[in-house]
């Protein structure tokens, strides 16, 4: 496990991320309305060490009631239309 933590530390040092310009707090709720899955794969990586969206105070939350932003991906299929409106 220590090797893993060491690798992660080196990773953090090697990726020169710019410091966040202004940190705030924003809660995001993701709704997939018929994307090609690319958005989801990339969104998953956004919270990885490489991009680390958390440093901007961005977070994905568990309930639409907690969210400030609905992040809709895809062209909104007919079947997702009703569900999107509920959210």
């Amino acid at each position: 496990m220590l090797t893993l933590l060491r690798d992660l530390r080196n990773l953090r040092r090697s990726i020169a991320l710019p410091a966040a310009a202004s940190t705030g707090s924003l809660a995001i709720r993701h709704v997939d309305c018929g994307s090609c899955n690319g958005c989801e794969h990339e969104l998953t990586l956004v919270s990885s060490p490489v991009v680390d969206m958390a440093r901007y105070g961005l977070g994905i939350v568990a309930s639409p009631r907690h969210a400030d932003v609905l992040l809709v991906t895809g062209p909104v299929t007919t079947r997702m239309h009703a569900a999107l409106l509920t959210a």
Binding site: L5, D7, L8, R9, L11, R12, L17, A20, T23, G24, S25, L26, A27, S48, P49, D52, A54, R55, Y56, G57, D68
Partner: peptide, 24 residues
Amino acid sequence: ARLQGRRGAGPLQPYRELRRLWGK
């Protein structure tokens, strides 16, 4: 965050969240 190789939002983030929630 640091242990996971990320930078993190800083230790003051919970206060920002509380402020955001207070306004909703």
